[in-house]
Amino acid sequence: MGEVSLIEVSKRFTLRLDGGVQTVHALDRLSFTVRDGEVVALIGPSGCGKTTALRIAMGLETASAGRVTVDGTAISGCGYDRGMVFQHAELLPWLTALKNVEFGLEMKGMRGAALRDTAMKYLTLVGLSGSVNRRPYQLSGGMQQRVGIARALAIDPKVLLMDEPFGALDAQTRETLQGELLQIHARTKKTILFVTHDLDEAVLLADRVVVMQHGRLHEIVEVPLPRPREDLAKIRGSEAFAQTRYHIWQALHDGAGAPGAGVNDAGVHGDGVHGAATLH
């Protein structure tokens, strides 16, 4: 099992600037559910709150209102039921690839020979069995990201949360890793929630795409592509791909005219009142 729900999640940030205090409404009553084994993409304009939503789901940030549940139980803070893949991998630079993966397992309480075996298993899964003794600076960006994915997968979370996992990579590496992620998902059946800026990536990987605008849920788009998705070139050329992609593109551009990010001066608006113009 591994069902994540965001329920009426709001987040306000208080910014102290030279001119005084500002409140940023990063999320406004955001609700959606990622079903067990499902892959959901979170997409939206820059600053619309995708990272914030993911960090709250991980427990790295607390919601100002609302809650996040995993399999019906409200989360409090981080937990081994969720694994995080960071945008820039964030490997510990003093540890080898193997030790980085083992680090996560150790934190979970694993000791002894199982540590090495499990870490090796997941590094092999992401195709890195040959470079396990390299330190992060001796790995390419794509390889680092694979280690990051292996580290998150190794603790065997129910849900994988990923913030633009391939955003910093070149197009070719990105495509390779997208294919690998699809395979990993087919094999492990993990629930995956990931943030992306890339329309193609969203359609290619996800079962549903959550489109956000100004901290709110704008639309949820179903991706009618069957699994397993193996021949990616063919999928990209398909009619269903093009239509879904266009649909999401439209959803993204619906709110293009509205003011960005929902920034407003504190005190001008009451609690929970969103600063940005209403869409719809």
Partner: peptide
């Protein structure tokens, strides 16, 4: 120390001491 590295620990539910 980059906040991101500390968050790696937090995401793995490491205690403050660890």
């Amino acid at each position: 120390v980059p906040k991101a590295l500390i968050e790696v620990g937090r995401a793995l539910v490491a205690s403050d001491a660890v």
